[in-house]
């Protein structure tokens, strides 16, 4: 399953959901039409799920999707406990698992890639539901039921990865300034879209 194809399906089912994305899913969503309720967690590897938790608690009237990565989840694994403790019924945590760090760039194996059971971890932490999906048609057919159920819900989406772009022929890649400012800009865009600033001004 390609990350972009999975993101297209999830994006088609989001309705008015807020999406917090990071890592490969962020790059995929950047190729889809802009949604003002999407924000990237970057560069802050590991932070997407907790930002999503805050949004879910602040806005219980709408769903919040987190598009995480396997290595970024592992970076703040205790966040699964923080989420289950807070019990946000509107939080849906999708983890795009390609078992690789710097996918498409350097392709370094994620620790635990061959042994860690992310779904079992989410269940053990107390998520309302947790499942693994490794085929695009399964994602399409099961998604409606997943979103009809209560959160916090965890979905491990098993995805492929591209060949590494970095190497002797392409030894470096520069980070743009925008990569360090977009998270704040997108937070403010979400606040504006939700009318938060008007509420403060009032």
């Amino acid at each position: 399953m390609k990350t972009l194809d999975a993101c297209k399906i999830l994006d088609a089912h989001r309705d008015d959901a807020i999406v917090v994305c990071t890592m490969g899913a962020m790059n995929a969503l950047d190729k889809l039409p802009l949604n003002p309720l999407t924000m990237a967690c970057v560069p802050l590897m590991g932070g997407a799920a907790s930002i999503g938790l805050g949004l879910a608690l602040a806005r219980p009237e709408r769903k919040v999707f987190v598009f995480d990565g396997d290595a970024s989840l592992l970076m703040e694994l205790g966040g699964l406990v923080s989420i289950s403790h807070a019990r946000p019924k509107n939080l849906y945590h999708f983890v795009f698992n390609n078992s690789i760090q710097f996918a498409g760039l350097g392709n370094l194996e994620t620790p635990g890639a061959r042994s860690a059971d992310l779904v079992a971890m989410a269940k053990a932490c107390g998520f309302e539901a947790a499942q693994r999906i490794d085929a695009l048609d399964d994602l399409e057919s099961r998604l409606k039921g997943i979103l009809a159920g209560p959160g916090p819900s965890f979905v491990e989406v098993v995805v492929e990865y591209d060949a590494p772009a970095l190497g002797t022929e392409n030894p470096a890649v520069e980070m743009t300034d925008e990569r360090f400012t977009r998270m704040g800009d997108e937070i403010r865009r979400i606040r504006h879209h939700l009318g938060c600033d008007a509420a403060v001004a009032a």
Binding site: S50, L57, A58, S82, R191
Partner: peptide, 26 residues
């Protein structure tokens, strides 16, 4: 006041960021 208990401080900061994005004062 509502309290969100986190297991690490980076999460506490990130949850605060999410709450702020959703219009809360933290």
């Amino acid at each position: 006041l509502k309290v969100v208990h986190c297991t690490t401080e980076d999460q506490a900061i990130e949850v605060a960021g999410g709450l702020y994005a959703g219009g809360k004062n933290v």
